[in-house]
Structures are given as C-alpha cells and as structure tokens.
C-alpha cells in the first residue's frame, strides 16, 4: 500500500513537472475552469435572487451542496485523465500492451498517466463557494462535522473515480470513449449541486441505489449542515452513506478486470 502510494506520488511529480513546462497553457486552462464554474454559480445565484428559495432550501444551503460536489469532482477529475483518454490513447493505439508488460496493476498505471493540475481552477472556485456558504450559514465546525465532511469528499472521489473507470472499461468493447458517460459525470455534478429532495421520487431512487450520487452528496451534507432531512433519513444512515462511493469504486474495478480479460483474449 505504502509502495503503491509512493509510486503514484512519483508518477504525479513527474506529470506535474511536465505540465508546468507549458506554463501559459496551464494558466489559461486553470483560469478557464475557474471562470466556467464561476458562471454556473452566478446562474444559481440569479435563480435564488428571483425566487428566494428552492423547496424550502436557502441559497446558502444549496451553495454548500454546490461547493462540496464541485470540490469532490475537481479532485477526482484531476486523478482520472488516464481513464478519460483511455480509448484513444491506449486501446486504439495498442499502447495498453505497454501497461500490461509492467509488473503493476493496470489501473494504478492509468491513474499515474497524469495528475491534471489545471483542475485546480474548479477546485478553487468550489472552495470559495464552500467558504462563503459556511460563513453565511454559521456552521459550528466541531470535530465530527469536519470528519464527516472529509469522509464525504473521500467517498465522492471514489464514486467519480469509479464512473471514470466504468467509462474506460466500455472502451474495451467500443474502442472510443462514449459521450453518453458524460451524462453521469458532468450530469452527475450538476444534479448533485441541488438537494435531492427537489427531484421526482424515481430520480431519487436512481441516484441513491443505482448511481449513488446522493450518498456522496445530499445525505452526508444534510448531516454536516445539521438540518432535518425532508426525506426523513436518520443521522446514522447519513453518516454511513459515503461508503456507497467506495463500494461503487470496488464494483467498477471488478468490471475493469473483466474488460482487461477481454482485451488479453482478443489482443485488441
């Protein structure tokens, strides 16, 4: 484990140095991400300015949901460039062979493909929103709250990481990355920016049991905010919900190994 983390650190160090060689590109990308998600947030603010609240949720509360999911996604996104580009960079070119020739898990090597520093733009924007929402809501930061927030973010990173692994896994069959997976990644982020309780019950079930987006966003964040869940869930469930993200990641790795087996039996 320590060895694995050390290797990942090494990969990331190399990758970061490579990216900083192209300084202008990095600065523009990071700024672009910051502005892009910033505009999204301005849209959110305009909405609340007009209607005041959303099904009982105040602007600051929704901003908190927004901040958590954006920070989470920014980190997961930075870690998964290798999976995002898997089809064109590895399957189509046959370069996946190169990963198979090395004595390490293929998923580990792909995670090491790049640590996308430019995602810092979205992360920064998410953190600013989170800081503002925290002060507006006057959240008392006790140890339990901090711990739960960290667990939530960790579970969320695992969840989005799992989505990217699934997206890459499909490439073993389709070669090219499927745009349809963006519905779950980017669509997922958009969805989780709003409290789950505003959605139709069918959506709520899907986002809880199939694609457990609510388990790494809505449920634990309700507990961090310290409000009652209009959907009636209890604090224990809310605190344990982020584990669903880890389970999701585990399942995605099972799918991944099936994909690798397919690749090694067809050779393409």
């Amino acid at each position: 484990m320590a060895d694995t983390i050390a290797l990942l650190g090494r990969y990331f160090g190399v990758s970061i140095r490579a990216q900083l060689q192209y300084r202008a590109s990095f600065l523009l990308n990071a700024t672009g991400q910051f502005v892009n998600s910033g505009i999204e947030f301005v849209g959110l603010w305009a909405l609340f300015d007009r209607f005041g609240h959303l099904a009982g949720w105040t602007f600051a509360e929704v901003a908190f949901f927004y901040g958590v999911v954006n920070c989470t996604f920014a980190i997961a996104d930075a870690l998964t460039t290798g999976f995002d580009r898997f089809g064109t960079h590895y399957v189509k070119t046959g370069d996946f062979d190169r990963l198979l020739l090395r004595p390490r898990p293929t998923a580990l090597q792909l995670a090491g493909h790049e640590f996308a520093v430019r995602r810092v733009g979205r992360l920064l924007q998410g953190l600013i929103v989170l800081a503002w929402a925290t002060s507006a809501l006057d959240i008392p930061w006790d140890a339990a709250r901090v711990a739960l927030l960290l667990v939530t973010v960790a579970g969320g990173i695992a969840f989005f990481f799992g989505l990217m692994v699934l997206q890459a896994t499909l490439c073993f069959w389709t070669t090219e990355s499927l745009e349809i997976m963006n519905v779950l990644t980017y669509g997922g982020v958009e969805t989780a920016q709003y409290p789950l309780s505003i959605y139709h019950v069918a959506f709520r079930r899907v986002f809880t049991f199939v694609v457990p987006l609510a388990c790494i966003g809505y449920f634990p964040v309700v507990a961090v905010l310290g409000v009652e869940d209009p959907l009636g869930t209890g604090r224990v469930f809310q605190a344990l919900a982020p584990l669903a993200g880890v389970a999701f990641l585990g399942l995605s790795f099972v799918a991944w190994s099936i994909g690798v087996r397919r690749y090694t039996s067809t050779g393409s």
């Binding site: 060895d3 090494r10 990969y11 190399v14 190169r98 020739l101 090395r102 004595p103 090597q109």
Partner: peptide, 23 residues
C-alpha cells in the same frame, strides 16, 4: 515500433520511474 519510455520525459527520468515501477 513502439517505445516503452515516457515521451515528454528526459531519458534518465524515464529510467528512474521504471526503477520504481519494477521495485
């Protein structure tokens, strides 16, 4: 036909990365 090295890295850094990969 295909390199095992990292395209953007100096040769020595590829070697040092491989050292970690192969322990």
């Amino acid at each position: 036909q295909r390199t095992q090295l990292w395209w953007d890295l100096p040769v020595i850094e590829s070697f040092e990365l491989l050292q970690r990969v192969y322990r």
